[in-house]
Design a protein around this nucleic acid. Sequence first.
RNA 1: GGUGUCGUGGCCGAGUGGCUAGGCUCAGCUCUGCAAAAGCUGCUACAGCGGUUCGAAUCCGCUCGACACCUCCA
Length: 493
Amino acid sequence: MQLFEHNPIKIYNSLSGKKETFTPIETGYVGMYVCGPTVYSNVHLGNVRTFMSFDMVFRYLKHLGYKVRYVRNITDAGHLENDADAGEDKITKKARLEQIEPMEVVQRYTVDFHNILNTFNFLPPSIEPTATGHIIEQIELISTIIENGFGYEVNGSVYFDVHKFNETHEYGKLSKRKLEDLIHNTRELDGQSDKRNPQDFALWKRAEPQHIMRWPSPWSDGFPGWHLECTAMSTKYLGEQFDIHGGGMDLKFPHHECEIAQNEAAKGKSPVNYWMHANMLELNGQRMSKSTGNTVNPDELLSGNNDFFSKAYAPSVIRFFIAQSSYRSVLDLTNDGLLASEKGFYRLMDAVNLLEKLEVSKASTININAWRQSCYDAMNDDFNSPILIANLFEAAKYINQIKEGKETISAEDLATLTNTMNIFVFDVLGLENVVKNDSGTDKLTGAVNVLIKLRQEARANKDFALSDKIRDELAEAGILLKDGKDGTTYSVN
RNA sequence: GGUGUCGUGGCCGAGUGGCUAGGCUCAGCUCUGCAAAAGCUGCUACAGCGGUUCGAAUCCGCUCGACACCUCCA
């Protein structure tokens, strides 16, 4: 009996605009695709938030016993700056600026991306395919779309015929747009003469002579359009229809809309059963933007080397901060918010670290199984991590009360409590236990315990000047003493 | 201009018809030699105006405001 059998999940499906009970295509198996980063610069913090949301989805599905194939691509072929562009893409542009090969850019920022995600304790996806590794699949896909009458070639470039597609299909059904409205609201851009209509999008672009990233194709030496790779790779690794497709809210249109169109044009099927979109991350109430300077890199946030925050924050504190809001809400990154989360996070960790020191009684004063189920209920409801965390704090309070002798717990319930806390805090939320506690084995513990003992002797002799000196100087060194009923413990800042 | 999301207490942030999360901050208390930590208590909110209902933060309408997308963007 797997956990998922009695834990039905509800997922907010962007396609229907409603929460729907999740039913995978194959019982026990989940195929999930998330649009990955374009590796032309350091990974954006907003990217981190989006991927972290899906990391928690991945973690929870795995915990429930699903066999999950999680595919998150690396876009290394470069998107066009815009459709009117003569052919220089982001990666080529960056390469020219930095006087290096495009693939060098890709390599550098792919490594950066992985480093940052490792720092934040991400689980690696099952498959992390690259766009440049799937040129052949993309060319085949274009051929099929042309054969089916939804693509046309002009001057070595191939475009998707949105108007033709819309005659028999519904372009805009994900983003709730109508082609008519799009026609009225599309700006006239220069250099679009190749397209039959401004709403059409590129499937293949002929490369200009100076363009370094290029591949041969039936139409020209060129490169694939920027919506195509996700269709090609999701189909290859998850099939023509799969369970969950995720990404940032800003990809809903046009990127995901075009993915649906390409799939339907090529395979005649709508590819995805559940579309999930993570909302935006703001910095001090405004969108992050490099041009206005209202932006901070992940490594700057972690190191404290920035103009926005008063200090450096641990990766788990940031993870905790993000988990305290719903993935579907806009989240505002502020110093006050991070400070509040930091305090809460360490309080939670302190409680977790107390678990192994609790004394058991014959009976428990709370219903631990009901509490445990409420943790599952929270995550089953569209991965509601804020509610889950509220439940974890309920447990923290209970743990502290047990320690104070105000509540009791049985040995069996303590095992359940410990197990459940570990599951949700570490396995599902992906937090790391950064609080060093006195495990009684390392040398620091020995040394601090000597000082604690000296202080206790001083206190017994009413030499409070000495005892306070020990306490205060340890505090300055980052070691906080906590006097409890059963003696003194410490924590390291 | 169009489309969409949303406006919750000092701050952050859940909650979609009645039982009204959680964190942080602040005040008081318990504990303590004093602190810290922990516990207890208090502060009780849903942008505004109408409407539906026995009952609305939650549904409907309007107004005001914010954000995102419509162009590369997670």
